[in-house]
Design a protein around this nucleic acid. Structure first.
Length: 849
RNA sequence: GCGGGCGUGAUGGAAUGGUAGACAUACCAGACUUAAAAUCUGUUGGGCCCUGUGCCCGUGUGGGUUCGACUCCCACCGCCCGCACCA
């Protein structure tokens, strides 16, 4: 019997597809298009199982849609700028460009054997000058359109390395390389006006019906629309009033202090004359810039000694504190604290011995606040104590609304809508990114580069042996002529956030080599992305930025209005996980071991070489640092691409994590071998037609229907399970050779999206016409899906006791008669009559006694 | 800290208001073999009486809605992800 040899078969079909140009996408307005896109990879140098899973999912969709008649676009590129290339250059002295392009070549070499239906003619990397030059053109157009501006923003500053750190380079408040305590420092940086689009980005979420609900919810929370009251506390010392914004103005009578950010103008003014406050602020500005770092840091305050007057009672004075947990970026950078109804404020007041005043109590079990703040949902009714707006019993929301109206009527405050969403800072003080195409001219100020001079290329002759940005210290790169006055000027040395690169690559794929950012005819035909697939870790930032960018590109004439929501459907897939293995080093710390170093047997896990005992750790995302990785290249070498593809589609639902196991990979391989053996047997079979044919034909149609709905519903694991079932049915069937052959051909078509090489081989072996990759998707005959008889389970009081088989269209009354005559039912009724008899036609019967 | 998600046999999971455990892994038993591998067949949620086509328990925990709950609601526990300069 011929064994299926993936190593020979897979390259053969890849060549065949290539020669037939099966996956080349061509604009054809006569055909309906379908654009499938997986989030493009960062070229780290090796593909991992997460990539295999991600791209196989996209490939299944692409191949399926193609089989159902769509003109499919399925491109691939590289998100190629970013810090790892610079880190590698610093660590080993190479050049980020060479490192990146070598990695791309390596990864492309690993991806091609997967047999993905990708149109490789559209491939590009974001670090190609051809790409980033067009990105610079977009920047200039957006700058002209007023979508970009400059302002100061806070960065992580490493005082020893004298460099800006990314959040991930800050470890426990210290620089990862120098170990120095990180400070927050302000720099002038470029920003996209994404917050101007907050309302639209929020409202349009409702139109994204084919996005996961959780992603829409996360984005809505991120945008963070709130309605609140803005008002001022007058200073007792007649200084400039302090503006505050609050979403809970109804708790104003419970205020016990006013808090301002260490970066608030008042705090900055006071620290000039108050060394203790200056010291407090310096301390407060230490630590990372992440929201998490700020929120989890110990809550500290400094009493400025200043007093403000309560807006409703001029005799009531509140102290002004500087507090390290108040962010200058939110609202006005100043708050009032109401400890009774906010846990953080309560902790703060207990710590600094400030009063706690209840403003409302629960209707049931009313008691004053002690250790825990009383924070009921805004929709709960509560009893108000001495409320200025004349409330007795009302919900928090009613009280908020009434308070805002009250404040507006009396002229001391006004209702405002605010968004948590901040403008998107795009400046990065790094080399390996898209240069921001502006020059700084002594006479003209900040001037955009002439589009004719694009791309502003990164210089190649740079070194990474010293800290800081190599562009800053390059001898000549900064020198430029001012595009406005022609005098000598200096280039901007900041580059763009890599999120900019990934905010429009999907549009570029529609015309990847055009000398404008996009070509409208192509964008109009191919956009939007019909199915976007990627990790849920991109649920907020990348997807929100891309949605903003599509709008900005529309406003600057680079995308049609119809493409402002660029991703019609989104799917977020889970991660690929693996057990972790570790031995103990001399210092007792774990030494991580890769799966191929470990042998598992009945004695447990041991090291292959030394026999040392290995601790089996938790199942977590495959990562280099924990060494729990399985290299797809090894799997492809050993079993072939189809096995890897089949495994990652099996078992786990695509949105959930999947655990890679050696036994699972082995099982996938065995199954594919089994299918090949069956195909060979069936080809040689000559059993005449017989009574078993109809049953097999019905099973075939049932399988076509189920596999199709599995793919349509992004439940590939269910499609796989149905194909396993169908294999078992076919193996046991006594049907004639013709019926079996038809069943096997249908199997090949159904397998094609998932294991395309095996499918081609089976298809060819059984005399299928042309390539199965180009064969139309099999159709189901609806009459084949309906069984004449159905099995009705019968429950007594909700517990299944027996079942009956009835014709599917039997009337309810007759079913009832049958049920009441049933022996088992009579036993449970014990001679009595049922209280109730529920018949759900075609599904179930429940007898209630 | 804030926001989001997940929780079902030994394991991955199926069932999304109607027979809990499809399909697969693992284990065990059998066939084939001198033997092993491969392949094929069968069993397997737990417990009880193993006497049947029998009974009880069972979807993280506790409560609720319903004729009926893995599924819907409330509270709690555990784990995972994101938090604006990682990509």
């Amino acid at each position: 019997m011929s064994r299926y040899n993936a190593r020979v078969v897979e390259p053969k079909w890849q060549v065949a597809w290539n020669e037939a140009g099966v996956f080349q996408a061509k604009r054809d307005t006569g055909r309906e298009k379908y654009y499938v896109l997986e989030m493009f990879p960062y070229p780290s140098g090796r593909i991992h199982m997460g990539h295999v899973r991600n791209y196989t999912m996209g490939d299944v969709i692409a191949r399926y849609k193609s089989a159902t008649g769509f003109n499919v676009l399925h491109p691939m590129g590289w998100d190629a700028f970013g810090m790892p290339a610079e880190n590698a250059a610093m660590a080993s002295g190479g050049h980020p460009r060479e490192w990146t392009y070598q990695n791309i070549a390596d990864m492309r070499g690993q991806m091609k054997p997967l047999g993905l239906s990708i149109d490789w003619s559209r491939e590009f990397a974001t670090c190609d000058p051809e790409y980033y030059g067009q990105q610079q053109a977009l920047f200039i157009d957006m700058l002209d359109a007023g979508l970009i501006y400059r302002k100061n923003a806070v960065v992580n500053w490493d005082p020893v390395d004298m460099t800006v750190l990314a959040n991930e380079q800050v470890e426990q408040g210290r620089g990862w390389r120098s170990g120095a305590l990180v400070e927050r420092r302000e720099l002038t940086q470029w920003f996209f006006r994404i917050s101007d689009f907050a309302e639209e980005l929020l409202a349009a979420l409702d139109t994204l019906e084919n996005w996961p609900e959780k992603v829409r919810l996360m984005q809505a929370n991120w945008i963070g629309k709130s309605r609140g009251l803005e008002f001022a506390f007058e200073r007792a010392d007649k200084g400039e009033a302090i503006n505050v914004y609050t979403t809970r103005p109804d708790t104003l009578m419970g205020a016990s202090f006013v808090g301002i950010s260490p970066d608030h103008p008042l705090a900055r003014e006071l620290e000039r004359t108050n060394p203790d406050l200056a010291a407090f602020n310096i301390e407060a500005r230490k630590g990372g810039t992440t929201e998490e770092a700020i929120e989890t840091a110990e809550k500290l305050g400094f009493d400025t000694g200043l007093k403000v007057k309560h807006p409703l009672n001029a005799d009531w004075e509140l102290p002004v504190w500087v507090a390290n947990f108040i962010l200058m970026d939110y609202g006005t950078g100043a708050i009032f604290g109401c400890p009774a109804h906010d846990q953080r404020d309560l902790d703060f007041c207990r710590k600094y011995d400030l009063p706690v005043i209840d403003t409302f109590l629960a209707l049931e079990n009313p008691h004053p606040v002690e250790a825990e703040a009383f924070v009921p949902p805004k929709t709960d009714k509560v009893r108000w104590l001495d409320h200025f707006a004349g409330l007795d019993i009302a919900t928090g929301q009613e009280a908020i609304d009434k308070t805002i109206r009250f404040a507006e009527k009396h002229g001391w405050g006004k209702g405002v809508t605010k968004y948590r969403l901040r403008d998107w800072g795009l400046s990065r003080q790094r080399y390996w990114g898209c240069p921001i195409p502006v020059v700084h001219c002594d006479s003209c100020g900040v001037v955009a580069e002439d589009k004719a001079n694009l791309p502003v290329r990164l210089p190649d002759d740079v070194t990474f042996d010293r800290p800081g940005n190599p562009l800053d210290r390059h001898p000549s790169w900064r020198d430029a002529a001012c595009p406005k006055c022609g005098k000598a000027a200096k280039r901007e040395t900041d580059t763009m956030d890599t999120f900019v690169d990934s905010s429009w690559y999907f549009a570029r794929f529609t015309a990847p080599h055009a000398d404008t950012p996009t070509v409208l005819a192509d964008a109009e035909y191919w956009m939007n992305v019909d199915q976007y697939i990627g990790g849920v870790e991109h649920a907020i930032l990348h997807l929100l930025y891309a949605r903003f960018f599509a709008r900005a590109m529309n406003l600057t004439g680079h995308l049609p209005k119809s493409a402002v929501e660029p991703f019609s459907a989104l799917f977020t897939q889970g991660m690929v996980t693996h057990e972790t293995y570790a031995t103990r080093g001399k210092d007792g710390r774990p030494v991580w071991r890769s799966p191929d170093e470990v042998i598992m047997d009945e004695k447990g896990a041991t090291l292959r070489n030394t026999g040392e005992t290995v601790e089996v750790g938790p199942i977590i995302k495959m990562s280099k640092s924990k060494k729990n990785v399985v290299d797809p290249e090894d799997i492809i070498d050993q079993y072939g691409a189809d096995t890897a593809r089949w495994f990652v589609m099996s078992d786990s639902p695509p949105e959930r994590d999947v655990e890679w196991t050696a036994s699972g990979a082995e099982a996938a391989w065995k199954h594919l071998q089994r299918i090949w053996r069956m195909a060979v047997e069936i080809e040689a079979d000559n059993t005449p037609p017989n009574d078993a044919d109809m049953e097999l034909t019905r099973a075939t149609h049932r399988t076509i229907a189920d596999v199709t709905s599995g793919i349509e519903g992004f439940a590939f694991n269910k499609s796989v399970a149905r194909l396993y079932e169908f294999t078992n049915v076919l193996a046991k069937s006594n049907a004639g050779a013709a019926a079996k052959k038809a069943a096997m051909l249908a199997m090949a078509q159904l397998l094609q999206p998932m294991v395309p090489h095996l499918a081609e081989e089976v298809w060819q072996h059984l005399g299928g016409k042309g390539l199965v990759a180009q064969a139309p998707w099999p159709r189901t005959d609806p009459t084949m899906l309906i069984d004449d008889n159905v099995t009705l389970p019968i429950q007594v009081n909700g517990k299944r006791r027996t079942e009956i088989s009835v014709p599917r269209d039997m009337p309810k009354a007759e079913i009832e008669k049958l049920v009441l005559a049933d022996e088992a039912v009579l036993k449970y009724l014990g001679g009595g009559q049922p209280k109730k008899l529920i018949v759900v036609p075609g599904r179930i019967v429940n007898v209630v006694t």
